[in-house]
Design a binder for these strands. Structure first.
Lengths: 304, 304
DNA sequence: ATGCTTGATACCCAAAAGGTATTGAAGAGG
DNA sequence: CCTCTTCAATACCTTTTGGGTATCAAGCAT
């Protein structure tokens, strides 16, 4: 038995007429007649009682009609559901993110994704970068937002935004009025630094930048995250360096200066397991690119 | 989408191996691979994630597997049910019968049918012969047990048993000791007669037999049905003629004699609408023939 | 390194589905 | 009563597709 035969039989019963049924199916009448005959022969049951010229549906035919309709509906539904799941319109997507994303690119991405794919269950989990990587590899995460570089070769990675570093000074600082500064101006200044444990990547990058500017920062305070660092600077404790995310904090007492040396920007990327680019993942990455497009164009203050 | 493709896909998922799946399906492996590919192409969804040599089932594939299994089960079930209904193993069969059958051939037929086809709903309805005929023609009855002749040409009719007529006399009657009698011995005897209204056919047949024996019965009592007539005879009210069914009444005071003239026996038949010989009807008629076979062989007293 | 296993590919054949033309029989209408 | 129309069935042909055999390419294990 075959879904095509059932479709044909249902059409015949529904229309009560071979010609019209064939037309509604988009085929000619003779093949339809033959398919019904074949179906009857295979079942060993007469479904239509041909009473010269006309026909009437037998008890068995009526039963088959009911069952066939349910089967066909079920098949269509299944096909649709599978298609939607495959195309990423439904399903469950588990997204991991590093803490530094929680206030920056994550909200607009999630907002846009929710709006575009309301039927997808979006599960968000915050982890450190190293756990994000192992979770991606083990399959417990579908996508992750994290900072490159990544050592794993089994992961696909795409950079979403590149944030230039800015110099942070208190409002009453001697450089506060300037639009830009050279990094070496910070030599000997009291420095607010990212802790190695809380933000190893930022710690490393800032130390590296200072080293390239040929000074060693006089660290007076450690802080874990960017907005903590910015808060300490705004409080006048010292100067600091931070990615341009800080422009979104809007803290009184904080001044942001461009860095004349133009150090390499800090990238934010998303990663997923190579080959695990399901529809959901493809859709999420597309949405992420769309939602973070404005950053690339410099509209840093817009949150979508 | 096609049940074959679903069957194939389920086999692959179940076996986790194209070669074994193909073997279990009784086909070669390359066609199976192609069918799965076609299915994926038609759905636009990757169902199996081929990770070099091996494969794993994707989320969408898992969903399809669940749905497909239900669909296939449903299809098999539907096929089986339709087949059973068509072959007359299940369903509802409405059987009509004339009152005179209720104590004769109906019980053994019903008993045998119920035993052979326990899943058939057997609905029994008692009517007069004329209503049986119209009910058959209108389709509200599937089969009927009645006495020929039948005028309708749209009905198929098969005789089940032929009952010879017997002469009924009281035990103290002058003919009671004889094994047989000639009909004309009844000329002038007090006669118990079937009423024209209650048993028109029997009335007509008995009147006809008397006429052929060249006498007119001296009717002293009318009765509707055979066992009433027999009762009156046993009570010594008069003589009568009855089909051999009377041998089953076992009434004290009643004697049965063969009729020397061997009048044409009284037939009992079953009828159904020409062309409406569904599996149920075919089965019932077969059972009826089997159950009434003993009558033909003369075992009148056996009730099966 | 080298068989061996496994899924994919290439190519061929057979079966089955669809199309056109036509038939046969029954109802409708003059 | 006869024709004309209608509808399913049949005959015959073409196209599609499903299945088979041989073979390949890539891992995995020995």
């Amino acid at each position: 038995m075959d879904l095509r035969q059932l479709r044909y039989f249902c059409a015949v019963v529904r229309e009560g007429h071979f010609g019209r049924a064939a037309a509604s199916l988009g085929i000619a009448q003779p093949p339809l007649t033959r398919q019904i005959q074949t179906l009857e022969r295979q079942l060993g049951v007469s479904l239509l009682h041909r009473t010269q010229k006309k026909f009437e549906v037998t008890q068995a035919g009526l039963l088959l009609y009911e069952r066939a309709r349910r089967l066909l509906d079920g098949a269509d539904q299944a096909e649709d559901d599978v298609r939607r799941l495959g195309s990423g319109e439904t399903g469950r997507l588990t997204v991991g993110f590093a803490p530094s994303n929680a206030f920056t690119i994550l909200p607009p991405i999630v907002a846009r994704f929710r709006a575009t794919y309301p039927d997808v269950e979006l599960e968000l989990r915050q982890f450190t970068t190293s756990i994000l990587v192992t979770s991606l590899e083990s399959g417990s995460l579908d996508v992750a937002l994290l900072r490159p570089p990544l050592s794993s070769r089994s992961l696909q990675i795409v950079t979403l935004i590149r944030e230039p570093f800015l110099a942070l000074v208190p409002a009453m600082h001697r450089l506060a009025a300037r639009p830009a500064t050279q990094l070496r101006q910070f030599a000997g200044e009291p420095f607010v630094m990212y802790s190695r444990a809380g933000s190893p990547l930022l710690h490393a990058r800032v130390m590296d930048m200072c080293q390239r500017a040929q000074f060693s920062p006089r660290i007076v305070q450690y802080a874990d995250q960017i907005h903590t660092v910015a808060g300490f600077v705004a409080a006048g404790i010292g100067v600091a360096l931070a990615p341009s995310t800080v422009t979104r904090f809007n803290m009184p007492g904080l001044r942001l200066l461009e860095i004349a040396e133009k150090p390499a920007p800090l990238a934010m990327a998303m990663a997923w397991r190579t080959g695990a680019a399901t529809g959901l993942v493809r859709n999420f990455t597309r949405i992420a690119r769309e939602a973070t497009g404005p950053w690339q164009s410099g509209q840093l203050a817009e949150a979508t």
